[in-house]
C-alpha cells in the first residue's frame, strides 16, 4: 500500500447527495417563506417551528440509530458499524444543539420567556448531556477493543434510559401549560412546508453523518497504523537484543 491511496477522494454519490439536499433546502425555504401562511395568533415567529421540529426529528433518529448500532457492535463487533455509531451520536449532538437554540427563540415570543421546563425541551437537554458524555468517554477510553466496548455499552444504555426520562419529564411537566400543543399546523400550506423541511433536515443529517463517518474511519486507520508501527518496533528491539554485540 503506497501513499496516494488514502488521499482525499470525494465520491460522486456524496456530491450528488449534497446537491440533492441543497435542492431540498431551497424548496423548504421557499415553502416556509412563501407557501406557509403566518400563524394567526403567533405571527411570523411561528415559522421557527419548521426548523425546530425538523431538527428534533433528525436528533431523535440519529441518536436512536446510534444507540441501536452500538448494541449491534456490542453483540457482533464490526468496525464499520462502530464508526457509524460514533458518527450518528456525534451528528445527534449537532441537531440537539439546533433544537436547544431555536427552542428558546421561539419560546421567547410564544411563552414570554426564554426557557420553560417543557417536557420535550427538558428531554432534549438531558439527552444532549448524555450524548456528550458518551462521546467524551469514547475519546477518553483507552484505544482498542476494551475502550470501544465501554463506549458502545454506554450508548446502548442511553436509549432505554432516555425513554424513562421521557416518561418522567412528561409526568413532571404534566401540569405545565402547553400553549402550542403539536406545534399548531392549521393549513395545507403549513403541512407542506413542514414535511419538506423534515425531508431536507433528514437529508442534511444523512450528509453530515456520512462526513463524520469518513472521519471516524480515518481515526480507526490511524490507530491501526500506530499499533502496526509499535508492534514492528517491538519486534526489531527484540531481534536487536538477541543479536551478539559486534
Amino acid at each position: 500500500m503506497t501513499g496516494a491511496v488514502t488521499h482525499s477522494r470525494t465520491p460522486t454519490t456524496l456530491l450528488a447527495a449534497v446537491a440533492g439536499v441543497t435542492a431540498l433546502w431551497l424548496a423548504a425555504l421557499y415553502a416556509i417563506v412563501l407557501v406557509a401562511q403566518p400563524d394567526a395568533i403567533l405571527g411570523i415567529v411561528q415559522k421557527v417551528f419548521y426548523v425546530h421540529v425538523a431538527a428534533a426529528f433528525a436528533m431523535l433518529i440519529c441518536l436512536s440509530a446510534g444507540s441501536v448500532a452500538s448494541l449491534v457492535d456490542l453483540l457482533q463487533p464490526n468496525d464499520r458499524i462502530d464508526a457509524a455509531a460514533r458518527a450518528l451520536v456525534d451528528t445527534g449532538v449537532l441537531f440537539a444543539l439546533a433544537v436547544l437554540t431555536t427552542g428558546p427563540l421561539w419560546a421567547r415570543k410564544s411563552w414570554g420567556m426564554w426557557w420553560t421546563w417543557e417536557p420535550r425541551l427538558t428531554l432534549t437537554l438531558l439527552v444532549l448531556l448524555i450524548a456528550v458524555g458518551v462521546l467524551a468517554v469514547r475519546t477518553l477510553a483507552p484505544p482498542g477493543p476494551a475502550g470501544r466496548r465501554v463506549g458502545a455499552a454506554l450508548a446502548t444504555l442511553a436509549a432505554p434510559t432516555a425513554y424513562l426520562i421521557h416518561v418522567a419529564v412528561q409526568r413532571w411537566g404534566g401540569t405545565h401549560p402547553q400553549v402550542i400543543q403539536g406545534g399548531g399546523i392549521q393549513s395545507p400550506g403549513m403541512r407542506l412546508a413542514f414535511w419538506v423541511t423534515v425531508a431536507a433536515m433528514l437529508g442534511l443529517a444523512a450528509v453530515v453523518t456520512t462526513l463524520r463517518y469518513r472521519v471516524a474511519r480515518l481515526e480507526d486507520a490511524v490507530v491501526a497504523l500506530r499499533l502496526d508501527l509499535s508492534a514492528r518496533d517491538l519486534r526489531r528491539a527484540r531481534t536487536a537484543a538477541r543479536e551478539p554485540v559486534s
Binding site: G133, V137, A141, V150, T161
Partner: peptide, 27 residues
C-alpha cells in the same frame, strides 16, 4: 465499572450518571 480504565473518570462518572438518574431524582 465501565469507567475504571477511562481517563478523568472522577469527572466523567457524575457527568454520565446524573443525567441517567434524572427519572429517579424527579420521582
Amino acid at each position: 465499572a465501565l469507567l475504571v480504565h477511562v481517563r478523568l473518570r472522577e469527572v466523567m462518572l457524575p457527568l454520565l450518571l446524573y443525567p441517567l438518574l434524572a427519572p429517579v431524582l424527579l420521582a
